[in-house]
Design a protein around this nucleic acid. Structure first.
Lengths: 98, 98
DNA sequence: CCATTTGGTAAGTCGACACGAACGGTAAGC
DNA sequence: GCTTACCGTTCGTGTCGACTTACCAAATGG
């Protein structure tokens, strides 16, 4: 599973968006989502594998936050993809007008 | 299924990347991928639903190309998400240093 | 017209994965 | 040390969707 595939799941995307607002613990995330805490834990595990989030112990709780490394990598890849896509479209329009 | 969910699938992403290089017909796409032609057709149907590609008849063939509308929408959404994520991370670091 | 090429669709199978229940493990508070 | 709170993991289950096979429709060219 890569980063884009991870964000493809609606629940994981919701978790990531919550963490994009501010760091939270697992229980807090589960409270704001219609899934159980273990489910949140599993999604966090996946997001961690693809370097989109990091965790740190804080007493009995565990704080999860966005990982800028994965964010930058994914953003760079997508920027390239958007550029290719729009360039190809412009080129196709150009051909059409001949 | 939304746009991000659509690109979450590896095969669909491969199809989109091929179309991001240049417009192609269904058969051409299937030839360059390890899946059958009907599978490609089904993926194109999904990509079309989320406004990531458009199609146009060309004789007996059908040309698929990137749809700039969906690309712009998805890019804008993600840019916002990246901005939130990195801003929240910077704010967390700021707090940490106090 | 008829054969060929190209695609979309329907039906069915199979694997992946999202989820909850149950259990164990670790840190704080009295 | 015992309880409580919070979290990760494992297991089993159910469901969704990606894929192939087979069939059908439309456009081209002889």
């Amino acid at each position: 599973m890569d980063a884009l595939g991870a964000l493809g799941d609606p629940t994981r995307r919701a978790i990531f968006e919550l963490l994009a607002a501010r760091p939270r613990a697992v229980g807090e995330l589960a409270n704001e989502l219609p899934v159980s805490r273990p489910a949140v834990s599993q999604h966090l595990k996946v997001l961690k594998q693809v370097s989109l989030v990091t965790d740190s112990a804080a007493g009995t709780r565990r704080l999860y936050r966005v990982d800028p490394r994965g964010v930058h990598a994914l953003r760079d890849y997508l920027d390239q993809l958007w550029d290719n896509a729009l360039t190809a479209y412009a080129a196709a329009v150009e051909r059409e007008e001949e």
